[in-house]
């Protein structure tokens, strides 16, 4: 059976489409955005992370490890990654959840069970399920399966995508997707490559083809101060969009709430010290985009 690698399922999600939603976060992303606030979603692999502050030094994880990959080192637990087979025995045994597995293999049945739990809230609020990530399109086969199931069961679906996938995959899923939340970040392809790890060519191509066959697409534009919040980029994006059949743009202010997660997964944060855009700045950008005739909303 096909299984998806999922890193989180967030219920009562209010910012990823209309109504009360459940957001399913797929693990693994082909992009590497500097501002990513879910860094643990980047790798396609399951991972084990360790929070020193939660550890009570009971040593149960070391005892239980079948491959002897864990040991104490200066008050903290270290793991020999070459040795470890990710059996997750330590994650299960750890009494304080200091060791946590990130990523869980889930079948369509598993996912539908979780998604359907909040059906009554979707129905009352006009909500549904949003597939986000990571990049959900990177696991297109199972994504398609789950989307089809949702369609069958009358659950509204949204796909939150970076647009970085094959057109084949888009073609497959768009018929069973009610709403796309499509990220556009930078029009300058070089800058795009610098800050996200990939050029924007595939992303824009896909969008141009998608607008021809799907009429419910919201463009999501993260506003990252000093990286893409300049007038030039905003205007260029608007000019570009005006050629396409999109009407709605959501602008999402940058925030650094993900910064602690970088420590947890032992990665450097490249935007240390960067502040969120001011409300005033967001409002100005909103007005600028509105002038092009779009419906604009700050936040999702």
């Amino acid at each position: 059976m096909k299984k998806a690698t999922i890193f989180n399922i967030q219920r009562f999600s209010l910012h990823d489409g209309p109504g009360i939603r459940t957001t399913v976060f797929f693990k693994g992303c082909p992009l590497d955005c500097w501002w990513c606030h879910n860094p643990e979603s980047k790798s396609f692999k399951e991972e084990l992370v360790f929070s020193a502050s939660k550890c009570i030094h009971c040593g149960e994880c070391i005892e239980t490890c079948k491959t002897q990959s864990l040991s104490f080192y200066k008050d903290t637990i270290v793991r020999n990654e070459d040795n470890c087979n990710l059996c997750r025995g330590c994650d299960v045994i750890c009494p304080t959840s200091a060791i946590e597995a990130i990523g869980k293999k889930m079948s369509t049945i598993d996912l539908m069970k979780e998604i359907e739990k909040d059906r009554v809230f979707y129905e009352e609020s006009g909500g549904g399920v949003t597939f986000s990530g990571g990049e959900p399109l990177s696991q297109a086969d199972i994504l398609y399966e789950v989307l089809s199931q949702c369609k069958l069961k009358g659950i509204h679906t949204a796909v939150d995508t970076s647009g970085y996938g094959t057109w084949n995959d888009f073609e497959k899923i768009h018929k069973v997707t009610d709403l796309f939340l499509y990220d556009i970040k930078l029009m300058d392809s070089k800058a795009h490559e610098k800050y996200t790890g990939v050029t924007n060519i595939i992303i824009l191509n896909n969008l141009e083809r998608l607008v021809k066959c799907h009429d419910n697409i919201i463009i999501r534009l993260p506003i990252i101060p000093s990286i893409n919040d300049d007038d030039e980029n905003i205007i260029e994006i608007c000019n570009y969009l005006s050629k396409l059949r999109v009407r709605q743009v959501h602008i999402l202010p940058y925030h650094d709430t993900g910064i602690d997660k970088y420590t947890k997964i032992n990665e450097d944060y490249r935007l240390k010290g960067l502040k969120s855009p001011t409300e005033e700045k967001m409002f100005k950008i909103k007005e600028k985009i509105k002038a092009f005739g779009y419906e604009v909303k700050i936040g999702g």
Binding site: L14, G19, I20, V120, F121, E123, E124, S125, G127
Partner: peptide, 17 residues
């Protein structure tokens, strides 16, 4: 206004159950 709507939806959902 969205906050009020969400609260209303939560309440209505609980009461539907």
């Amino acid at each position: 206004e969205t906050g009020l709507e969400k609260l209303t939806h939560l309440v209505r959902s609980y009461f539907r159950l």
